[in-house]
């Protein structure tokens, strides 16, 4: 058979695509339950970490229990462009701490994170990331403690214009209470994070927390 005849070429490519497409799909579907479980575990772990919840162990059930026993949830419609945003609130103490997911475009891909604020929304308690695809060794350092710890207790300067309420990297005043150091060498990631974090904070401030219907979290959702 002539290897260069169009029919052979098309047939060869079709067979190859079918073979490898099936292979990847098989692996994908065979592991999809595991993948979803891992995703949920990571999600719960980040939320527990951001609220600093007490956890009994390391299993997925421990994280899920910590969340159901400490947090209640509400949907804030229109708080994310046109979509809705989940708002978590602590009910096991009277602090009224709030936690909200936020997200925006990083250098390579979307960065998804979670931020906890005090009840007055004046100070950040913690900031954590669910996932990102920033360059290893450069932008990916946003998830290192030495960067994240800077946000603990950071004061948001609500009187400043929207893009400068939280500063990452150089500001007008190096000692400003709302400033953290940027990642050395990863200017693009740092700037993107600063921009979308400030945009998201503006949306978070616009949420009328008192009007929300908070509910206990159903175990099966976690």
């Amino acid at each position: 058979m002539n290897k260069n005849s169009p029919i052979y070429v098309l047939g060869f490519m079709a067979a190859l695509c079918a073979f490898f497409g099936t292979g990847v799909s098989l692996v994908h579907y065979a592991t999809s339950d595991l993948l979803a479980a891992n995703e949920r575990l990571n999600h719960n772990r980040v939320i527990c970490d951001a609220f600093d919840l007490p956890i009994d162990g390391q299993t997925p059930a421990d994280y899920a229990r910590a969340i159901t026993e400490s947090l209640e949830i509400a949907e804030a419609t229109g708080a994310n462009g046109n979509g809705s945003r989940r708002v978590y609130r602590r009910y096991d103490d009277d602090s009224g701490q709030l936690g909200l997911p936020f997200s925006g475009m990083g250098f390579w891909d979307r960065i998804n994170g979670f931020i906890t604020l005090d009840a007055e929304r004046e100070n950040i308690i913690r900031l954590r990331f669910f996932d990102h695809k920033e360059t290893p060794g450069l932008g990916a350092r946003i998830e290192e403690p030495r960067f994240l710890d800077q946000f603990d207790g950071l004061t948001i300067d609500w009187d400043a214009p929207v893009p400068r309420r939280v500063l990452i990297g150089t500001g007008h005043n190096a000692d400003a209470p709302n400033r953290v150091d940027a990642i050395t060498g990863a200017t693009q990631t740092s700037n993107s994070l600063r921009d979308f974090l400030n945009t998201e904070l503006e949306r978070i401030r616009a949420i009328d927390i008192d009007a929300l219907q908070f509910q206990r979290i159903d175990d099966t959702e976690l």
């Binding site: 475009m105 200017t187 700037n191 921009d195």
Partner: peptide, 10 residues
């Protein structure tokens, strides 16, 4: 080209 960075953001 680093100086161009961050001039336009999405």
């Amino acid at each position: 080209f680093v100086v161009f960075s961050g001039m336009i953001q999405f």
